[in-house]
């Protein structure tokens, strides 16, 4: 099984590759359309800023390619946000795979809620979904983000910070997670393993 990890200017993707390596997966970091199309599964990682990332994807026609893919596809962190319709981060039109809007966290009370949302938080309201198979109840995952996807029919897990937001989304072959599974201990490992066995 071949895993393509989409290469774009998205900060540190090394840890995603290491996590896949620990699971024994054959992963390659690439922005070559043929290689991405031919992969059994595709991972779209990301850290960074939405408009810069979208510009980069468009300049290489990766935006069109991503929407045409038929194999299981996993967006991580900024990857989740870019799969949504629109992000408030520099008013960016995103890929629109999920008809969901991405908004900025506005703390009601800065003493209680800091932005970014950094650290370990729980996945709640887990749907019956193959990606969430055999996870403990309300498992903890590691977050670092200032923008969040709103709750939607595509939400398969939520997390509470200031309010509930989409921790994970699923539609057709597209899956996405806001947290960093590659940094989320055994829970993250299980999520990635579940994705690999889809």
């Amino acid at each position: 099984m071949k895993i393509a990890v989409i290469k774009y200017n998205s900060g540190n993707v090394q840890s995603v590759l290491y996590a896949l390596e620990r699971l024994g997966a054959d992963a390659v970091l690439t922005d070559d359309p043929d290689q991405i199309r031919a992969a059994d599964k595709v991972i779209f990682p990301g850290q960074g800023e939405a408009s810069t990332a979208m510009k980069y994807l468009k300049a290489r026609n990766l935006d069109t390619l991503i929407k045409e893919l038929k194999q299981p596809f996993l967006g991580v962190c900024l990857g989740l946000q870019l799969l949504c319709e629109h992000s408030e981060e520099n008013d960016t039109e995103c890929l629109g795979v999920f008809p969901v809007k991405v908004k900025k966290f506005i703390p009601e009370n800065s003493q209680e809620f800091k932005v970014p949302h950094v650290g370990w938080n729980e996945l709640e309201n887990l749907a019956d979904n193959p990606l969430l198979k055999d996870l403990p109840e309300n498992p903890f995952v590691y977050y670092v983000h200032s923008f969040y996807a709103e709750l939607a029919p595509e939400t398969i897990a939520s997390t509470h910070y200031i309010h509930d937001f989409s921790a994970m989304l699923h539609r057709d072959n597209y899956y996405a997670i806001q947290a960093h599974p590659e940094k989320s201990g055994l829970v993250g490992e299980k999520l990635l393993a579940n994705f690999l066995s889809l």
Partner: peptide, 8 residues
């Protein structure tokens, strides 16, 4: 370390 551990 990055290869061996899965926490930040």
């Amino acid at each position: 370390v990055a290869k061996a551990i899965n926490i930040p």
